[in-house]
Structure formats: C-alpha cells, structure tokens
Amino acid sequence: MDTLLSLRVLSAVAEHKSFSVVADRMGLSPAMTSKHVQHIEAHVGARLLNRNSRNVSVTEAGAQYLRTVRPLLEGLSEAEAQLTADALSPRGRLRLSMPGWMENPAFANILAAYHDQNPHVTFDLDLSGRKINMVEEGVDLALRVAFKLDEGLIARKLAEVTFQLVAAPAFLDRFGRPQSVDELDDAPMLAYTQVAADGRVKFGGSDGVDIKFNPILVSGNEGILQQAAIAGMGFAMLPNWATQSDLAEGKLEAVLPEIAWPKLQIQAIYADRSYLPAKVRSFLDFLAGPNGLSAALK
C-alpha cells in the first residue's frame, strides 16, 4: 500500500473528522479510506483515530504523531508545487557552457531577448570551451561545433557555422597573398582543435579537396588562435562570428574568400532526461527559433 497516500488520508480524516467526506474528496471508496488509516496504525503500532458510526476523533497518540507528520506533508506538497511550477514556467539559474567565440554582441542580444521574455531565468556562463562533465558539474546546456557525446547525453542541431581562413596583413605581406589553394600546402597554421587539429582542412564541400597545413599552434581556445593570427603568426581557420570586427578594422584579412571553407553544425548538448526543466526547454526552443542562432549567424 502507498504509505505516503495513507499518511495524507490519515491527516485529512483527522482534519475533517469524517471518512466519507475524505473518501469523496480524494476519489476513494470509504472502505479503502479506512484501510489507509489502518495501514498507518499497523505501521506505527498504535491507534491514531477513534471512530464509531457517528464521529471520528484523534487519539492522544494520533495527535502527537500528526504534529510531526503534518509539517512534513505540507513541506512535500510545497516542494511538489514548486517542481511543477519549474516544469511549466521557466525559472531558476541556467548554467551554459559554450565556445569563447560566442562572446560577442550577437549572442549577448540573444540572451537579452530571451531574458526579456523569461525574467525569472538567470544565466551562469562558462566560455572557456573546455571539455566538461555536464552531469558532475551541473551544466544544463553546452553549445559546441564539434562534440563527442558521452553516455547519457543527447544533441540537438541549432545552426550552421561558417569558418573562414584569415591572416594578418603583415603576415600576408611576408608570406604572400595566396591566389589558389595550392599555395597553402605546408603553410603555417594556427589550428583549431575542433576543426583542423592535424592541419588538414577540406574545402569545396563533401567532394572537395584537402589542404595540408603545417600546424605550428594547436588549441581548442579560439581566442588565443585569433590573437596569434592578429600578431602575424600564421593562417587561422575561425568562425565568421569571431572575425567580423577584426576584418572590418583591418586587423585580419580573409584569405581566398570565394572558397567554400568548412561549415559545421553548432549543437546543443544536454543530459538525456525524461523531463527537461522549463528553463532548458524554453531556451533550446528560443535558440532554434526565428530570432535565435541561425538568424544571429547570418
């Protein structure tokens, strides 16, 4: 028998002093209502209610027992109500992990727009791009352009990220400005771990050709690759989002911009749970919506 339900029945019968009233309110038969009370009495080894054909009263043992049990039942009801509210209405802290190149005005605008619609959700952001254990670290959502899924995680594709080969003007003055991909063989490469850790880059789509750069710096942190490119260390393959301002300011130049450089899916990674909290579910839907990542990445 469900002991928790039996406790709730006992508390209700003691309050209303009627088995029939409680049976009607809780959708139970009078006989089952009585069995629930008997279940608790047998469990504690004491008579908790006096009952006869006309009335019901609480025994001294019952009063003592209910003084302890009722606050617990009320606390449990409050907790269940809060969980239900959290499941239905976005609220609470949303912990996100994402690449450093998402530290830009476009993504900040996405956060601001979402928060306008969901003011009870707060954000805790990790832009280190490091490999994480989402479950152990309590991360709700990770945004990645490449990610090997650990057991118990699932991915949802959100948008396509276009990468661009860039280099500093001073570096290109020394190296030369390539007019074809053949001139890039064995060229010094600042290699992004997620795209070209070995220096090999495919261009021209799935049927394209590989270029084999010479990786002189390899990192999963896009920020250091970008700064090294600006410093004139070599070529870098970076997301368009990360390089827009540097290209506009002349700190970097696009190399062979007509080439179909790699495009990768940015994915939302989250724990495989039957009931996603509303804060996670709603933010996922917002990112995938018309004003989400796809619009920002254009």
Rank of each mutant, 00 (worst) to 15 (best):
L153R: 14
F163Q: 00
E136N: 13
G223D: 07
L96M: 03
V181S: 15
A170F: 04
V135G: 05
Q117G: 14
A159N: 07
V139L: 08
A159Q: 03
A106Q: 13
P277H: 05
A278L: 07
E60N: 12
A46R: 15
W101E: 00
P257F: 10
S34A: 11
L190C: 01
Y270N: 10
L284G: 06
H120P: 04
L73G: 06
M1Q: 08
L141S: 02
L158F: 10
D140R: 07
R273V: 13
A278D: 10
E60L: 11
H115N: 11
S18Q: 05
T122Q: 09
V21C: 01
K148R: 07
K148N: 13
S128G: 05
I132M: 04
Y192I: 00
R91C: 09
L172A: 10
E151A: 14
P290W: 02
D185C: 06
A248C: 08
L94P: 01
F213H: 03
F175M: 13
R67Q: 15
Q244W: 04
A106L: 10
F213I: 02
A87Y: 04
S89Y: 14
V139I: 14
L153I: 09
T122Y: 08
S89C: 12
R95H: 08
D173A: 15
L153M: 14
F163V: 01
S6V: 09
G232H: 07
A113D: 14
M233S: 11
T33K: 06
Q226H: 08
T122V: 06
L165H: 06
K251L: 10
Q164T: 08
G292A: 07
L165T: 03
V280T: 14
Q164C: 01
K298W: 05
L127Q: 01
G129V: 01
A85M: 09
L83Q: 15
V161N: 02
G232R: 08
A278R: 08
S245D: 12
A113L: 12
G199L: 04
H36W: 07
A229I: 01
